[in-house]
């Protein structure tokens, strides 16, 4: 199948330092790809380049087969309606209520009446387990976990085919982060989503990702299933997955995930 995202020969340069050197990566439809890497390895920058928020120094990023730079603005706008993004801090509009935050993308389309928008927003909020009584609250009154779930509801408002998650479980307690992972898995099965996520959280990684791409040494060091990644004996990987912390997480999850990485149940 044709890849949904293709990155070819990408270079990122900040001043004198090269962050990505001739990086290649592709994401197949329907898969959950996790990007991991040490801090400063350019995970978030790569994500922002896939979103067209930053322009690489060299190279092409194609999403749905459309290059993100050098295409007409109208085509790019249409493209952007086909993906949803969950930012690390949620990025809810602080001047709008929870309801209006989720309703905004639907209202922007200007093709649904207010009753429909209302039902749709309530449905999306229910999907992420937000009770209706929170709909009139302002983002400043919410806890971090609720902000993330509402931001996910907003990202899903336009029925995206592709979902970007930036540190989806950072700042959530283990219980919440587990239910968040379950939620994403459920939505993915139901809506046939393709998911690209940046995460540090080994539990999330093991539970949700089909494929892991490790960013180190300015490129994609290795990409594949958990076993394939762990088999590559690079110092970063050894430290990340096979360090004390990593082994603990893997050991705890092994009985739950027969075959190690076949994540979503």
């Amino acid at each position: 199948m044709k890849p949904l995202i293709e990155i070819e020969g990408l270079w990122t340069v900040f001043g004198d330092s090269v962050v990505h050197r001739d990086l290649n990566l592709s994401v197949a439809p329907g898969e959950v790809l996790a990007l991991v890497g040490g801090s400063g390895s350019g995970k978030t920058t790569l994500l922002r380049q896939m979103l067209g928020l930053e322009r690489p120094a060299r190279g092409v990023v194609r999403v749905f087969g459309i290059p993100l730079h050098g295409v007409p603005a109208a085509q790019l706008r249409r493209l952007r309606k086909r993906w949803g993004v969950l930012f690390q801090e949620g990025a809810l509009y602080s001047a709008l209520s929870v309801f209006d935050n989720v309703a905004l993308p639907l209202r922007e389309l200007r093709c649904f009446d207010e009753g429909f928008v209302r039902d749709m927003v309530m449905l999306k909020l229910a999907m992420v387990d937000i009770e209706a009584r929170h709909a009139d609250k302002m983002p400043a009154e919410l806890s971090g976990g609720m902000v993330k779930r509402i931001a996910l509801a907003r990202a899903l408002a336009l029925e995206p085919e592709l979902l970007f998650l930036d540190e989806p479980t950072a700042g959530l307690d283990p219980d919440r982060s587990e239910s968040f992972v379950r939620l994403v898995a459920e939505l993915r099965r139901e809506l046939k989503l393709t998911v690209v996520m940046v995460t540090h959280d080994l539990d999330t990684l093991v539970a949700a990702a089909d494929r892991i791409a490790v960013l180190a040494e300015q490129r994609v060091l290795v990409s594949g299933t958990l076993q394939e990644v762990v088999a590559a004996r690079h110092p970063f990987i050894v430290n990340f997955f096979l360090g004390e912390r990593g082994l603990r997480a893997l050991a705890a999850l092994r009985p739950l995930t027969p075959g190690g990485a076949a994540g979503i149940r």
């Binding site: 309530m122 229910a126 999907m127 009770e131 209706a132 009584r133 709909a135």
Partner: peptide, 9 residues
């Protein structure tokens, strides 16, 4: 999911 009972706002 649509048919699931939900409290209304």
């Amino acid at each position: 999911r649509l048919g699931a009972p939900r409290e209304t706002s």
